[in-house]
Nucleic acid binder design. Structure first.
Lengths: 233, 233
DNA sequence: CAGTGGTCTAGACCACAGC
DNA sequence: CTGTGGTCTAGACCACTGA
C-alpha cells in the first residue's frame, strides 16, 4: 500500500507548513520520480488527498493545497459576501445567466409546480479569495417578484428581495449530500469531471410562510464546512 | 473520455432498474471486456459512480448498487433505530468498545477539557438493512453519568440518558464535512481505504445548557442525506 | 513551443473471499 | 482452490496551459 505512504508523506509536508495553502504542487512526473513510483500510483495518492479535502485540482493546471474551508451555516440569512467577510475572506460573484424559463423537472418538483410553469432561473459562480468554489442555481417563483431581472441579481438575492420587494427569508428546508462535478458545472469551477463535491439544496420561505425560491448549490467539497446550532424538537 | 460514457451506460442501467439496489455488479474483468476497455479505465468509471453515491464498494468483495440514502435530521432527537424505522428501514447497532479513557486531543478540544481528562469513549458500528453504514464515536463527560457503562450503551444513548439520568438533549452544534475512510474505520464499514465519506461532528447540550457529550460520525457517504428544516435568525 | 495533466493500454502479482 | 479485487508497472498519445 504504497499510495497510503505517499499520501501520509504529503500530508506531513502540509501539516509541517512546507506546502502552503493555495500553492501548486510540483509536476506529477516529478513527484512520481521523487517518490520512486509511477504516475498512476502517485495520482491515486493525490486523489485520496483530494477526497480528504487536503488538496484540490484545477483542470489541466495541476494540484494545489486547499485553504481553510468556509464555515457555512444554512440557518443563517446573511448572504455569501457577508458570510465570507465575517470570516476574513474575500468573496466575489459572477452572473452566468439570468432568465425566465419553463421550470425543469427537478425545479418543478421542488417548487411543487406543474411541469413547464415559468420561473426565473439565475446561475451564478461564486469565488472565495479569487478561487471559484460554488455554482449556485436559483429557481424563483415569479409571482412574488415582478420584473426581478431589472434589479441586481449578481450579488445578494436576499438583499434585493428585502429592499425591492419587502420579502424576508424566515424558514429554510435544506438538504446536503455528496456528489461529483460534471460538465458545465465542473468547467465553471475549473474542476476535472468527476471531482468530489458537496451538493446543497434549499427551499426558502418568506415571512408569511410562502415558498419563495429554491437553491441548488454545487460546492468544491474542500471549500465548505456545514456548521450550525440547532434547538432540538 | 471513454470513462464518462461507461459511467452513463451503467447509470442508465440503474435508472432503468436493470441493476437493483443492493445487487452486486459483474466482475471488473467481465465489465471491462463488455465495455471493450481495460480494468483501469473501467475502475475510473466505477469510482465516479461511487463518488456520486450511485454505487458502493465492499473491500475485496466487489461493487454494489446503492440503496436509497437515509434521511438524517441532525436537529431531531430521535435515535438511530427510531429514525430508520420511521423510514421503513431496519437498523442494528454493534458495540465496538466502551471504556473510560483520557480524552484524545480532538475530544478534549471539542469538550473544552484540559488534555488527558478522563471521559467515556463509546465506539459503535451501525447497520442499515444489515449494511454497515456508520461508525460513531462518543466522548461523554463522566460527571453527568456516574456508572454509565453499567447500562446499555449499544443502542440508544439518548434513551439511557433520559431514563437513567433524567438528562434530555436540548441543543446541538453540528458540523458536516467530507473526508475519506481510513484504517479501522474503513475496515469496520467493509470499505476500501480511501472511500469517500461524510463526517458529522456534534456537540450536545442538556436541558440546563450543559455540554454533555460529543459525537464523531463517519458515514458511508452514499448512505446518508442530511436534511433539516430551520427557522432563520 | 515545451511541459503538463488527462486519458488510456496491456499487462503483472498478491491476498483474500467464498466455494 | 479459483476467481476476484487491490495494487502496481512502464509505457503511450493528445490537448491544453502558460511562458
Amino acid at each position: 500500500m504504497q499510495y497510503l505512504k505517499i499520501m501520509e508523506a504529503i500530508n506531513e509536508q502540509i501539516d509541517a507548513g512546507l506546502l502552503i495553502a493555495g500553492n501548486k504542487l510540483p509536476a506529477e512526473r516529478k513527484l512520481a520520480e521523487s517518490f520512486n513510483t509511477t504516475r498512476v500510483t502517485l495520482r491515486e495518492s493525490l486523489a485520496l488527498l483530494e477526497a480528504e479535502g487536503k488538496l484540490y485540482r484545477e483542470d489541466r493546471r495541476g494540484w494545489f493545497v486547499s485553504p481553510e474551508p468556509l464555515k457555512y451555516d444554512p440557518t443563517y440569512t446573511t448572504n455569501f459576501p457577508a458570510m465570507a467577510r465575517e470570516q476574513g475572506r474575500v468573496a466575489r460573484s459572477q452572473l452566468l445567466s439570468a432568465k425566465r424559463v419553463p421550470a425543469s423537472r427537478r425545479a418543478a418538483s421542488l417548487l411543487q409546480l406543474p411541469p413547464l410553469t415559468e420561473v426565473y432561473r439565475i446561475d451564478r459562480l461564486r469565488f472565495l479569495d479569487e478561487r471559484p468554489v460554488v455554482v449556485v442555481t436559483n429557481f424563483i417563483l415569479p409571482q412574488h417578484f415582478p420584473d426581478l431581472l431589472d434589479h441586481d441579481v449578481t450579488n445578494s438575492l436576499t438583499t434585493t428581495y428585502r429592499e425591492q420587494y419587502g420579502v424576508i427569508y424566515s424558514k429554510t428546508r435544506y438538504r446536503v449530500s455528496t456528489t461529483s462535478l460534471l460538465g458545465e458545472t465542473a468547467q465553471a469551477l475549473r474542476a476535472t469531471s468527476g471531482s468530489p463535491a458537496m451538493f446543497v439544496e434549499r427551499l426558502n420561505y418568506d415571512q408569511h410562510n410562502n415558498l419563495i425560491d429554491c437553491d441548488l448549490e454545487y460546492w468544491r467539497h474542500d471549500a465548505i464546512c456545514i456548521e450550525s446550532l440547532a434547538t432540538l424538537t
